[in-house]
Design a binder for these strands. Structure first.
Lengths: 292, 292
DNA sequence: TCATTTATCTGACTTAGGTCAGGTAAATTC
DNA sequence: GAATTTACCTGACCTAAGTCAGATAAATGA
């Protein structure tokens, strides 16, 4: 009876809805409608263009306009013309606005901190949240090209190195491996793709090029919570497309038998195993793929 | 940066909110307001007294009354006087109403089924949901006295046996152990308590009495997702209170060293170890506590 | 019995949230 | 340079949701 997945899912939905409702109620405690509070929060989180706000919050332009007027009237934000497009406008928090924003942040932070502080296994709780967020958000995963030194890209790389350290018997030291130059993984030589789920980085892959027709696939990583969703295949597909657009005709990669999922992926998506083509100490398998 | 628990919690909240919003939108597709749909669903789930509906849905009596009138007008429900209290009223689905209720159930079922079907580890997903639901709902956990043969009580007992089977090297067979008669764990001889979190059973404990001043504590079980929240201590406290109310002055219990959390609980909450007092093959530790 | 409480209903009212049809001014396209 | 598109704003309007003050009738307690 109660082990019925649907009932358990419902219980989960109910408990989360209650939590969200309680958070909304405490937001209302600051004497502002939820709509206005949401706009203020989005601005505080760096969504400053009015157009971006409209899209992110999914608001009618008339409604957003009125909410902006209200926040402006309260002295919490200023709205100024966009520097390069005089039709568009940019919202910014005033000093009072920043204080008010911080107050909202405090409310939601203290709720989540309280949740983790009181729990016997906060790490398990976080992992559970990641797993569910990845599952619920799988159709909203988007990929963007990033500088490999950008914060979200760096996060992926660090997680990638940490994972190799756990998987390899010998551990993993980036300095012993040939760490690509960032510019080799940026246009026009290469590219670096980051997969985002609700703005959290959950995967990456790099194409390291040298301007010629042969390039390497590097740093393919998928967050544990997002594995099994077919994301690796999708990222590789996008990486190949990007390589084609850079006039690359042959891709190579190296990998290790301690990463069986990766080996299986390459074996089933048109890669052919080739002899060792570098002297990196870690890899023990090498693949190649000719692009159309 | 992104490994920041608060950011991860926010991402979780956002993905869940999006999911709930999408579900609400598909509910709206049936041409009825969310409020009316919620009332219809609550009735379908067995909340038939108007007073119960009001409390469960947290609605103003005027508002609920109007929603009931609307559903009645659509021919989905009938509202009849309460058989024993002519002031109160009882709502029931008509045949059309049951169909409409089933349609809503279908919508939400298919969403959750889809989620599990498409996921590589549905069991992990469910466990994650249980963990989060228990953590978020910990302040709403309530205990109720149940017949040990009631569905929720039985669910707890089955989980309890399954867990013993996993913990004991020899496995566990209820038939070899002395399984208490249900009536020995019901008033006036004893009691059986079930802990519920958002209507899902997550723990139980029984007092098995014989009408005399000495009784036994049996079947203390806490769902894995709810461990570490102090629930066992709370259930034991409530069981002791119930025993006192039944004029029981001495409680005994047996346990096994394969259950170290239980041993620790008894050792730290006023129980004293005593010699074996039965010939049940499973236990290897025995405790006693005198109630004031 | 009579006053009080309880369960529900009705009607008047408020508010948040949202839609829609223009209007203005800048940017873009032809 | 004219026509079109884009970004935002304003004002009119609508609806779901919720609040509040009685009204009614049954149940309860003194």
């Amino acid at each position: 009876m109660t082990h019925d997945p649907i009932k358990r899912f419902r219980r989960f939905a109910r408990s989360v809805t209650t939590e969200v409702g309680a958070l909304d109620d405490s937001f209302l405690g600051r004497g502002r409608s939820l709509g206005a509070a949401r706009v203020l929060n989005a601005i505080g989180h760096g969504r400053t263009d009015v157009a971006e706000l409209r899209q992110y919050l999914n608001l009618d332009s008339g409604l957003l306009s009125r909410l902006l007027r209200q926040l402006e009237g309260e002295g919490l934000i200023t709205v100024t013309p966009h520097p390069t497009d005089a039709r568009a406008r940019i919202a910014a928090l005033t000093e009072t606005g920043a204080d008010e924003f911080a107050a909202y942040e405090d409310i939601s932070d203290s709720r989540s901190r309280d949740l983790f502080d009181r729990h016997p296994h906060p790490q398990a709780l976080l992992d559970a949240m990641d797993l569910i967020a990845s599952a619920l958000g799988r159709d909203r995963i988007r990929t963007e090209v990033q500088d490999p030194r950008a914060p979200q890209a760096l996060f992926c790389l660090q997680e990638y190195y940490a994972e190799l350290g756990r998987r390899f018997e010998t551990g993993f030291d980036v300095n012993l491996s040939c760490d690509p130059q960032a510019t080799d993984m940026m246009a026009p030589r290469g590219t670096f793709l980051v997969a985002l789920s609700d703005d959290m980085p959950i995967g990456c892959v790099g194409i390291k090029g040298n301007g010629g027709p042969v390039a390497e696939v590097k740093r393919l990583w998928i967050a544990p919570s997002a594995r099994g969703l077919g994301l690796a295949k999708r990222l590789m597909q996008q990486a190949e497309d990007a390589a084609r657009a850079l006039n690359i005709t042959t891709l190579r990669l190296d990998t290790n038998s301690a990463l069986p999922e990766a080996l299986r992926l390459y074996q089933t998506t048109g890669w052919t195993e080739i002899p060792r083509f570098n002297d990196d100490p870690y890899p023990d398998h090498f693949f190649e793929k000719h692009l159309e």
